Amino acid sequence: MTPSSPSPTTKDPAVAPGTSSPSRSPEDRSARIAVTVFPVLILAAAVFAFFVPSAGQALAPFTAIFLGIIMFAMGLTLTIPDFALVVRRPLPVLIGIVAQYLLMPLLGLGIALLLQLPPELAVGVILVGSAPGGTSSNVIAYLSKADTALSVTMTSISTLLAPLLTPLLTLWLAGSYLPVDAGAMAMSIVKMVLIPVVGGLVVRLLLSRLVDKVLPALPWVSVAGISLVIVAVVSGSTEAIVSAGAIVLLAVVLHNGLGYLLGYWAARLLRQGERAARTTSIEVGMQNSGLAATLAASAFAPAAALPAAIFSIWHNLSGAMLATYYRRSAEKHRSDAA
């Protein structure tokens, strides 16, 4: 989900001439800490839930509330100018959104078929692929010297489209595995995602000074929320973890890694620059796993939420590694050009 987000108004260190080294900026240090700490906390939450499942099962009825709080916090970080990029640079935004909602769902189906996953796990992988982009992608884009403003816009637009596209894609691709109530899923996304995000945006517009004061705390609100979601999901999936944990991890690693790769080359083949291609790569590979886990747990069997729970841990670890690679690549190109 969202370990931290650089402010949408923060200048991208890759393009801010005359600024100090991004590795020394407070925003960069904060983002690095969050990206490091977040997967550790999520892993700790998963381990706790696995060994103390009774505690996690008590939280299960409240997962939709936790997700709503996370999405409200996301809305508080948004401003109207975040959406202006759609008008100024529509092509890279369109490429990112289409790749997000085309490549990842089809990859999910392909991996489910390749690994011959049982129905609950197959639906879980497909649902992860059909979810919108995760807001932790904004931090990874920032650390990768990609286009942070483009990343924020892609995440915001894909999230607003989720009530329509996520249920339709899940019905289309996962309906052969298990019955899918697309209407009920769409209404759940409206309640858990769309209303909180729009509500947060409105509050930011009306009370901007007050919201600015609490912005530093919002990433940790999201960390706490997704940790509670993971505790609830894992506690109901202990048997599935024991019997199928390894195959689910393989599915998640393949899904995430191929998403990065195909997202990058989709942008490059459509004549986008290096920074836009990195951004698309990150946006396509990183999913709103908290939403996928909550939907899977409520609409299907608890085991269907397991891929999303593992994805939440893995994509933050892999994203941090990808950021290191992209960053070093950008610095090498800069030194070669000099």
Results as ranks from 00 to 15, higher is better:
151 S>G: 08
141 A>Y: 11
24 R>D: 04
257 G>T: 15
244 A>F: 10
156 S>V: 02
128 V>Q: 05
16 A>F: 10
53 P>E: 09
256 N>F: 04
203 V>Q: 10
153 T>K: 10
38 F>D: 03
254 L>P: 08
104 M>Y: 01
177 Y>L: 03
97 I>T: 12
325 Y>V: 15
278 R>K: 12
311 F>T: 14
133 G>C: 15
214 V>E: 07
301 A>D: 14
319 G>M: 06
54 S>W: 10
67 L>W: 06
106 L>Q: 00
39 P>C: 00
243 S>L: 01
59 L>M: 08
242 V>T: 10
219 P>S: 14
252 V>I: 10
147 D>W: 12
232 A>V: 05
223 V>C: 10
53 P>N: 11
198 V>Q: 04
51 F>C: 01
183 G>T: 13
11 K>V: 06
220 W>R: 09
308 A>H: 03
113 L>I: 11
98 V>N: 07
148 T>W: 06
70 I>R: 07
127 L>Y: 07
256 N>H: 15
325 Y>H: 15
183 G>Q: 13
94 L>T: 13
119 P>F: 02
201 L>A: 11
43 L>N: 02
19 T>N: 13
104 M>H: 06
198 V>E: 03
289 S>G: 13
7 S>R: 14
18 G>L: 08
92 P>W: 13
295 L>W: 08
270 L>D: 07
319 G>K: 05
313 I>E: 02
244 A>S: 14
126 I>G: 01
234 V>D: 06
11 K>P: 12
184 A>L: 12
248 V>I: 12
165 L>T: 13
300 F>D: 04
